[in-house]
C-alpha cells in the first residue's frame, strides 16, 4: 500500500491539455463570396462543445465497481479466516467504522483548510504587487512538502501536542503546496490577451479576476485539490502515531501485534478509501470545469 507512505500521486500540475485546435471552417477560396457568411456557419455547426468526454461512461462506472469488488473480496477473505481475540478486537465493524470516520474527518478538514488558505494565497501571489514575495512563499511551501510527512507529524506532536489538531496542521503544511502551486500556475497560464481584452473593455481588476482568471484557472486548481485530497487520505494514516486515530490505528495495531489479517484489512481499506476519493474528485473536476473549455 504505497499510498500509506505519503508516496502517493505527486503534483498534478500537469495542465489540462490546451485544447486550442482552431476550427477553420469555410475558408474556401472562390465560392466564399455572396453567401459566404452562411456557408461558414453551416460548416462549423456540428462541432460539439466537448468533442470527447475526458471520462467515458465506462470510466465513470468502472472504478466504483472495481473498488466495490475489492471491498467484497476483503470481506469474504476476512470472513473465511478464524480470528483470534487480538485480531477480533480490531477487525470488527464497530472499530473499523470509527476509524473510518476519524480518517475521513482528518482528510476532509485538512483539505478544506488547505483550500481556504492556498487558493486566496495563490491569488494574492499572482497579483503584480506581490511579485517580489512570491519566490519566498513558494520556497516555504516547498519545505513543507519536502520534509517527510511522518517527520512533520511527529515534530508537531513533540513541540505542541498529540491528537486531532496537530495532525491537521501537519497535513495542511504537507498539502498546501500542490494547491498553492496549481492555483498560481492556473492563474498564470490564463492567456494574457484575454486579460488585456478584459481590461481594454473596461473591466476592473477585481472583475477580471472573478470573471475571467479564476473561472479559467478552475480546472488546474481542481487538479491541485484532487492531489491534496489523495495525499491527505494517504498521509492521515500516519496520524495514528500521534493518537489522532484513523485507519492507521488498524494498520499499526496489526504491526505491533504481528497480525497479518489486521494489517491487510487496514491497508486495503485505506487504499479503497484513497481511490474512492480520487474518483469522486475526478468526477467533480469534470462537472465543475467551465463549459466551452
Amino acid at each position: 500500500m504505497s499510498l500509506g507512505g505519503g508516496e502517493g500521486p505527486r503534483m498534478r500540475t500537469a495542465l489540462a491539455p490546451q485544447e486550442k485546435e482552431l476550427v477553420f471552417a469555410g475558408a474556401v477560396p472562390g465560392q466564399s463570396l455572396g453567401k459566404g457568411l452562411e456557408d461558414e456557419g453551416d460548416a462549423a455547426e456540428d462541432i460539439p462543445v466537448r468533442r470527447r468526454r475526458r471520462f467515458p461512461l465506462l470510466g465513470y462506472a468502472g472504478m466504483p465497481v472495481a473498488l466495490g469488488l475489492a471491498a467484497l473480496l476483503l470481506y469474504l477473505w476476512v470472513q473465511g479466516r478464524e480470528l483470534d481475540s487480538i485480531e477480533a478486537r480490531r477487525v470488527n465493524a464497530e472499530v473499523i467504522r470509527e476509524a473510518f470516520v476519524e480518517h475521513m474527518k482528518l482528510s476532509a478538514v485538512s483539505t478544506v483548510i488547505v483550500i481556504a488558505l492556498a487558493v486566496p494565497l495563490g491569488v494574492l501571489l499572482t497579483r503584480s504587487f506581490a511579485r517580489w514575495v512570491t519566490p519566498g512563499v513558494v520556497a516555504i511551501a516547498n519545505i513543507g512538502q519536502s520534509v517527510p510527512s511522518i517527520g512533520v507529524i511527529v515534530l508537531l506532536a513533540l513541540a505542541w501536542d498529540i491528537g486531532f489538531w496537530p495532525a491537521i496542521v501537519a497535513l495542511v503544511a504537507y498539502t498546501l503546496l500542490p494547491v498553492l502551486r496549481n492555483t498560481m500556475v492556473g492563474l498564470q497560464q490564463v492567456d494574457h490577451s484575454l486579460i488585456e481584452a478584459a481590461r481594454g473593455m473596461g473591466m476592473t481588476k477585481v472583475a477580471v479576476l472573478g470573471r475571467v482568471e479564476l473561472p479559467l484557472a478552475v480546472p488546474t486548481i481542481l487538479a491541485g485539490v484532487r492531489t491534496a485530497l489523495v495525499i491527505n487520505v494517504g498521509t492521515a494514516t500516519l496520524a495514528t502515531f500521534t493518537a489522532a486515530g484513523g485507519l492507521g490505528d488498524i494498520v499499526s495495531g496489526g504491526i505491533s501485534t504481528s497480525r497479518d489479517t489486521t494489517i491487510i484489512t487496514g491497508a486495503v481499506l485505506t487504499g479503497i478509501l484513497a481511490l474512492s476519493i480520487d474518483w469522486l474528485a475526478g468526477v467533480a473536476e469534470d462537472l465543475l470545469r467551465p463549459k466551452g473549455l
Partner: peptide, 22 residues
C-alpha cells in the same frame, strides 16, 4: 480608466473572446 474604456471599443489581434462564455 475603467469608465473611460467602456466608452471605447477595443479589438486586439488575438481577439480575446472568453472561452468559458457563450
Amino acid at each position: 480608466p475603467d469608465q473611460l474604456r467602456r466608452r471605447i471599443g477595443y479589438v486586439i489581434q488575438q481577439i480575446g473572446l472568453f472561452p468559458h462564455m457563450t
